[in-house]
Every structure is written in structure tokens, then in C-alpha cells.
Design a protein around this nucleic acid. Structure first.
Length: 400
DNA sequence: CGCTGGCAAACA
DNA sequence: TGTTTG
DNA sequence: ACAGCG
């Protein structure tokens, strides 16, 4: 559990923590011109605020939910990012996400094109958008996107559970303009029909209080089955979001045999008690205790069980999306880490593990990529950070 | 200039 | 296998 | 119609 040799990419233990207490001592930010060195390319960050860790790995620095600076710039870039996603331009969207994540973590407002371009992740194209923003206070392309009927329609359709950009585009081309029209489409999958029917409820955000109500129910019911289950809310709720579209929960139990059958038991009970209305997605992995098949002894290659549910919230009677994930005890910490997100934080972590540590991180384990692949046993989130040699990042600061 | 970019698993 | 999910 | 890296 000791940190591996550090690659000097991250050093600063301080300047790191939730920062704030911004005693603006000489951050070079006010003096809008650096003194001498303009051409002194000797070192990496000249102009950049030294509190900012300039890296392509978002997981190495804390990113708040709401940026303190560059907020409207971030919102506009997010419009372009989303538009790229809706057009299936995945790589392109990813580039915007890198730039956005950096701006959210950046400790003051960007003041110039040159400053922006020094940030890893901001290249010529996005740099130009920022330049436009600095003079016009908006980004023309983002405004055009927001005003376009196509974007508005695709945006709505793609929010339906079971609908991605391909289906959204298909419906748009058929001339549908509303959710109601989509419901008459003759080629709906079962899940899409459900998604359309539940659309209005699923669009309603849950307050933290709403979520606490649901957690109370889950806690009571799950513990009535096995009192020593461990129940951990993850997802946006754990990252501190005030309002959430769904609730993700990781459940585990110290005894492997019990954990193996837990999902079935929980789902049955939730059905019996009338809380669970629909199963949107049910993944049950063969626990395959038959020792004959597959690899050598000690196989234990079970993956997570999970069930994405439509769950009635008693106080409001609104249907809520609740994602239940059952993890064997041995995979509990990687499951919690993996399901806490954000999506970009996960991508970054896994990419870092692979590229910088020759390891593979997934929600069901941490592996060393030697031949054959060897599992690294971990028992806590902190231990995973330590092994990867990454400074601890609070869940509330994983919002990249 | 060419390659990579996070992943696994269900449904139709 | 392609599409979608978290 | 993106950006970084080797």
C-alpha cells in the first residue's frame, strides 16, 4: 500500500486541498503582465496560476461541482460538447470535456487567449472559442446550437431511457417533434417504450431529502434480509450534487455466499413490498460455483450483479430511477470508486492506471498488467489511490 | 504524421 | 453485432 | 470537426 515511485507529475500535497482560503498572495494573477520572461520557454507553466495542476489527467486534481471561475464559459462549451455527442462525434466531444474539466478546476477567470492555450487540453479550436468568448461574452457556435430546432429535439429524445444518439436521430428524421409522437413509433424496443412512459417522472430531479427517503427504505428492507449488509450511496449524490436524476447504491455483504444471491433477494422483496415497479436492466452474473468449468482453482471471476429499477417514492408517488449494484466483498472498494464517478473522473483514472502504472482498473478490481494479469487486492478507496500513486481526491471534488 | 482516447454487459 | 446503459 | 503524444 505504499505509493509507487512517483512520477513527479504530481507533487504538491498542498495547494491541493479544498483550497479556498484564497489568500491571494502574489498569485501572479493580478499583475496581468509577467515581468521578465515572456520567451523564457525554459519551464512549463510561466503564466499559469501555480495553484493549478496542468495535466491531461483530471483525476490528479480536485474539480468542484460548480466552478468558481469561468462558469459561463464552461456552460457554453458544454453546449458544444453535448452537441458533438448528439452527432456521434465522440472523440471530438471528449476533447471538449478535457478542456471543460480543466476550466472548472482553474483557480481564476481566464484573461487571454495565450493563457488559455497554455492549459493542456485547450488547442487551437477550443482556444478560438475562448478568444471569442473573451471579446463577445458568448460563443457564436454555442448560440447557434442552442437556437437550432434539431439540437433541441435531439436533446429531448436522447434523454429517454433506452435512447441514444442513433435512435434520437432516427426519430428526428421521421419528423417526430414530441415524446408523445415517439410513443406511436412501431419499432420501439420494450425498454424504449418503458422509457417513454416514465419520461415525465424520470425528468424530475430528486433533492437530497428525496434521496434520503429512498435510502431509508432501502436500508430497512435490505437489512431485514441480512442485517449486516453494507449499503453505500454513490453516483452524483455522493459527489455532492444538490439535485439528482437517479440514485446509485452499492450493496455488499461480508459473506461471499450471501453476497452472491443478494440481488435476487433484494429485488424480490422490493417487488413484494410494492416499491419496485419495473426492471429496466438486470444483469445477473453466473456465480458458477461449479469448480469444473473455466480456469484453475480459486476462480472467483464473478462480476457485479446489478439492477436498474423504476422505484416508487412513497411521499410523492413519483417513479425514480434507482440503480442497485451488488459487489462481492472483495470488490467493494473498486465498485464504490467506479460507481461514484464522475464519468470523466473514471475515464481519467483508468487511463492513468493503464498508461502510467501499467495497471487495469475497473469497477470489479485492480489488476497489474503482467502476464498473466494479476489482481491487486484492495480494501479501501484510499488504498487504490495510494497504489496508483494519486493524491486522494474527495468524492465532492471528482466532478470533472 | 498516425494513433489513441474508459469500460463492461444487456438487449434486439 | 450494433446500440445503449452506468 | 479535437488534442496530446511518440
Amino acid at each position: 500500500m505504499k505509493p509507487e515511485p512517483l512520477s513527479e507529475t504530481f507533487v504538491q500535497e498542498e495547494s491541493y486541498q479544498t483550497e479556498s482560503t484564497s489568500k491571494d498572495r502574489r498569485t501572479s494573477s493580478d499583475s496581468e503582465h509577467n515581468f521578465t520572461d515572456d520567451e523564457q520557454t525554459s519551464d512549463i507553466e510561466f503564466d499559469l496560476d501555480p495553484r493549478f495542476l496542468n495535466t491531461k489527467y483530471e483525476c490528479l486534481r480536485p474539480t468542484p461541482l460548480k466552478p468558481k471561475y469561468n462558469q459561463s464559459l464552461v456552460e457554453l462549451l458544454e453546449v458544444i460538447e453535448h452537441s458533438r455527442e448528439l452527432n456521434g462525434e465522440e472523440r471530438n466531444a471528449l476533447s471538449y470535456r478535457h478542456a471543460i474539466a480543466a476550466l472548472k478546476a482553474y483557480p481564476h477567470n481566464i484573461k487571454s487567449y495565450a493563457e488559455a492555450r497554455k492549459i493542456i487540453g485547450v488547442g487551437p479550436k477550443i482556444g478560438n472559442h475562448i478568444k471569442e468568448f473573451l471579446t463577445t461574452d458568448t460563443i457564436p457556435e454555442a448560440e447557434e446550437i442552442l437556437a437550432s430546432e434539431k439540437y433541441q429535439t435531439l436533446d429531448i429524445f436522447s434523454r429517454v431511457y433506452g435512447v441514444g444518439y442513433k435512435t434520437a436521430l432516427k426519430w428526428y428524421r421521421k419528423g417526430y417533434k414530441s415524446i408523445r409522437e415517439c410513443m406511436r413509433d412501431p419499432y420501439l424496443t420494450h425498454i424504449q417504450r418503458l422509457g417513454l412512459e416514465l419520461f415525465n417522472d424520470f425528468q424530475k430531479k430528486m433533492s437530497r431529502q428525496d434521496i434520503q427517503e429512498l435510502l431509508g427504505i432501502l436500508d430497512t428492507i435490505i437489512k431485514s434480509i441480512y442485517s449486516d449488509c453494507i449499503i453505500t450511496p454513490v453516483g452524483g449524490y455522493r459527489r455532492g450534487k444538490e439535485f439528482n436524476g437517479d440514485l446509485d447504491v452499492v450493496v455488499s455483504h461480508p459473506q461471499e455466499e450471501i453476497a452472491n444471491n443478494l440481488l435476487k433477494d433484494i429485488v424480490e422483496k422490493l417487488m413484494d413490498t410494492g416499491h419496485l415497479k419495473h426492471k429496466l436492466f438486470y444483469a445477473r452474473n453466473k456465480k458458477d460455483t461449479s469448480s469444473e468449468l473455466l480456469s484453475s482453482h480459486r476462480n472467483v471471476m464473478d462480476k457485479l450483479d446489478k439492477c436498474f429499477c423504476a422505484f416508487i417514492q412513497p411521499s410523492t408517488q413519483i417513479c425514480r430511477q434507482v440503480d442497485l449494484i451488488i459487489a462481492p466483498y472483495s470488490q467493494y472498494s473498486t465498485a464504490v470508486l467506479g460507481w461514484t464517478g464522475s464519468k470523466q473522473f473514471e475515464r481519467s483514472l483508468r487511463n492513468y492506471a493503464k498508461k502510467e502504472r501499467n495497471m487495469t482498473l475497473t469497477s470489479h478490481g485492480l489488476f497489474l498488467n503482467v502476464i498473466p494479469k494479476r489482481q491487486v487486492h484492495v480494501t479501501s478507496e484510499r488504498e487504490i489511490f495510494n497504489i496508483l500513486g494519486i493524491p486522494w481526491v474527495e468524492p465532492e471534488m471528482r466532478n470533472c
